[in-house]
């Protein structure tokens, strides 16, 4: 089953000289994938993830997510669509500073109006599975960068989204935390059958991916499955 499908997706940033960030990208991501988007700086990784995630609009082409064309959605509908279908992990400072780890994980379920008991169960078990059983009542400030990213992964998974998008999730982490986070993502990918799409520059991270899509100048130059 395709969770993401782009057709001739292009993104042009107009300016004195137009920047073509994405050039006619055709891409299909299937359920359960663990895919890395790689490429040199400025190749369009972030742009691609943003458009797939409904955060940015395409200049032309189409993006079908979970069977729906997100390019034609109105802003409010899009926010709601993101809430229910897509998990996000950003490079850093993902969490709401005034909420504890557990509250951060429950945040999305709360917005989806889950009842309290189900929220508790899910957030506790997720934090346990990312190895933060001891930290559930800590605020982001009291946790290391790696721990914060793990909370962010737990939050992204909280409401069982169609897929999780992670733009350079390990960029700010040391190698130990990087390995740890990748282990967790890989395990959750198996256990929860969550689709992961992440961008990275880090060879060790690339090595863990089961599919590696390489972008250059906004075009897919290689697409390799392992």
């Amino acid at each position: 089953m395709n969770v993401i499908e782009t057709k001739s997706l292009s993104k042009v940033y107009p300016g004195a000289i137009d920047v073509v960030a994405l050039n006619e990208v055709d891409l299909v991501i299937e359920k359960g994938e663990f895919t890395a988007i790689v490429g040199p700086s400025g190749s369009g990784k972030t742009t691609l993830l943003n458009i797939i995630g409904g955060l940015d609009s395409a200049s032309s082409g189409s993006v079908i997510v979970a069977g729906e064309d997100i390019c034609t959605m109105k802003e409010n509908k899009l926010i709601n669509f993101r809430l229910h279908n897509i998990g996000f992990v950003f490079q850093a400072y993902n969490l709401i500073p005034v909420l504890t780890a557990k509250e951060n994980v429950e945040f999305i379920m709360m917005m989806q109006k889950w009842d309290k008991q189900k929220r508790e169960e899910r957030s506790t078990s997720l934090l346990k599975s990312v190895g933060l059983a001891e930290q559930i009542d800590k605020r982001p400030m009291q946790m290391s960068g790696g721990q914060q990213q793990r909370v962010a992964v737990a939050r992204a998974l909280a409401s069982k989204p169609q897929f999780v998008l992670a733009d350079e999730p390990t960029a700010n982490l040391d190698s130990k935390s990087t390995k740890n986070l990748l282990d967790i993502m890989a395990r959750l990918n198996k256990e929860e059958e969550t689709t992961f799409v992440f961008s990275t520059h880090d060879q060790r991270v690339i090595d863990r991916a089961r599919r590696v899509i390489t972008l250059e100048d906004g075009q897919i130059v290689s697409d390799e499955r392992r």
């Binding site: 709601n80 897509i86 400072y93 999305i108 917005m111």
Partner: peptide
């Protein structure tokens, strides 16, 4: 700013 960016990205309504 960043926090607002994060919460709206992950699906928080602007109204909330």
């Amino acid at each position: 700013k960043r926090e607002f960016g994060v919460v709206t990205s992950i699906g928080m309504k602007r109204r909330s």
